[in-house]
Amino acid sequence: WIVIQQRIDGSLSFDQNWTTYKAGFGAYNANFWLGLEKIYQLTNSASYRLRFEVLSNGYWTSDEYDNFKIDSESLQYAIHVSGYSGDNLDILNQPPHGASLVSHNGMKFSTPDRDNTPNRRNCGLSYHAGNWFNYCYAQNLNG
């Protein structure tokens, strides 16, 4: 596995601008974001899977997508996933409670200084993070 994001504690803010999310930040053995451009280069050079591992309230959950890629910067690094399996829920395609407006799949990446959400609510600014927001989120691992 290639780690593209890791949050161990709150010692590093993920409230970063577009340029920083594009380049990457943090330390690979601590809190870390690989960088949108690196993720784009990786996912467009070969077939990749995406895996989430989350510790919440003392319990680990994991979710995987068999197919994962993001578009180039000219397309605002939109995310594309398919082929879900896991023990939590398909958070990128089928948010809880039937809230289809917050599905993340196909969304462009947004940051506090660059809003690419369909409704122009500036979710990155409101939730202090970069993410593939859509009215605003069902997951916000960077928030």
Rank of each mutant, 00 (worst) to 15 (best):
23 A>D: 14
71 D>G: 06
16 Q>K: 15
61 T>A: 09
74 S>Q: 15
74 S>G: 08
41 Q>Y: 01
89 L>P: 03
50 L>D: 05
57 N>F: 10
81 V>S: 03
17 N>L: 12
21 Y>P: 00
50 L>Y: 07
45 S>M: 02
89 L>W: 14
53 E>H: 06
25 F>P: 00
54 V>T: 15
49 R>F: 01
17 N>A: 06
90 D>Y: 04
78 A>Q: 14
48 Y>N: 02
53 E>T: 15
22 K>A: 04
27 A>C: 00
28 Y>K: 12
77 Y>A: 03
17 N>W: 06
24 G>D: 12
37 E>Q: 15
42 L>H: 07
71 D>P: 00
64 E>M: 10
8 I>R: 14
51 R>E: 13
91 I>H: 09
8 I>T: 13
60 W>D: 03
44 N>K: 02
90 D>R: 02
71 D>S: 11
62 S>V: 12
36 L>F: 05
52 F>P: 02
7 R>W: 09
67 N>L: 12
14 F>T: 03
91 I>S: 09
41 Q>L: 12
61 T>S: 13
13 S>A: 12
32 F>Q: 06
51 R>M: 11
7 R>H: 10
85 S>G: 05
71 D>E: 15
21 Y>C: 00
83 G>M: 11
46 A>P: 00
80 H>S: 13
84 Y>N: 09
36 L>R: 04
6 Q>T: 09
6 Q>V: 05
75 L>N: 14
82 S>W: 07
56 S>Q: 14
51 R>W: 03
13 S>Q: 09
64 E>I: 08
12 L>Q: 11
79 I>W: 00
43 T>Y: 02
40 Y>A: 04
65 Y>A: 06
22 K>W: 03
47 S>C: 02
48 Y>K: 08
90 D>N: 14
24 G>E: 13
72 S>K: 13
47 S>E: 15
